[in-house]
Amino acid sequence: MDQSSQETRFDFDAIGTRWRIVLHPKFDRPQKARLLYAIKARIELFDKAYSRFREDSLVTKMSRETGVFELPSDAEPMLSLYLELYRRTGGLVTPLVGNLLSDAGYDARYSLRQKKELEVPPSWDEALDYKQPLLTIKRPVLLDFGAAGKGYLVDLVARVLELNDIQEYYIDAGGDILHKSKRPIRVGLEDPINTKQVLGVCMLGTGAIAGSAHNRRAWQNFTHIMNPKTLVSPTDIAAIWVTAETAMLADALATCLFFVPPHTLAPAYDFEYLIVRSDRSFERSAGFPGEIFTQSSALE
């Protein structure tokens, strides 16, 4: 990735965040344009189905009516992961938090003001019945796929690249990174209290890293991470990073770790983690790849 003469690079905005894609080889302009078109088309297809921020999306439609809806064919990996995590976290991680987030202010218009009394979201079985490709909405509910959606989309964009015979790439969607290459890259772990600094460096080989923190999307008493049972945003953890084989898993588990301890997920999934608490103490899995900067860094 450091031979810039041999690489192609894309920088653009999509799904409300900044994307950077770097890949080998260097394409000529028409090839580059075609590839960018394919990538953006794939993102648009995903966004049109799963975004709760668009008036024309399937998710918005499902929030207004009951009935049986047909989901796109790419829904299965994401919905089944959500169902697993819903069960493993005792319902703390759930796609049914759209109304809660919206009522608290994180709505399609970013009003950032709590509009009404917050309600505990329904349970999965109360609102949904899922059997790919059909999703039955038993009562209107605004689904939010923020926990795993962006990561999944990164994996899907990677598939577009691979379909175009691209074997080495780096996809960064607002800090969720999927990397495939022979040599690892150095990923700085952004310090949530000072974004000009990093509190460590992760050596990322082929695989994904997802970072989750509250510092940017925060308003009034809330952040974009809300506990559906207590109706407040957790405050004890400042930032979490997870590395895993896919961006979807890394993204989803990073959200889970705000609510459940790592050992409840470790038996089922292959991942490494770093949790930084609000008091600046940290906890890392034994295999988390990289160096964390501490007062006693001299030991390394």
Binding site: G174, I185, R186, G188, D191, V198, G211, R216
Partner: peptide, 14 residues
């Protein structure tokens, strides 16, 4: 560093 990972950059609208 090659890259930085942190909280997702906020939407421009946000």
């Amino acid at each position: 560093l090659t890259a930085v990972s942190g909280s997702s950059l906020t939407p421009i609208g946000f």
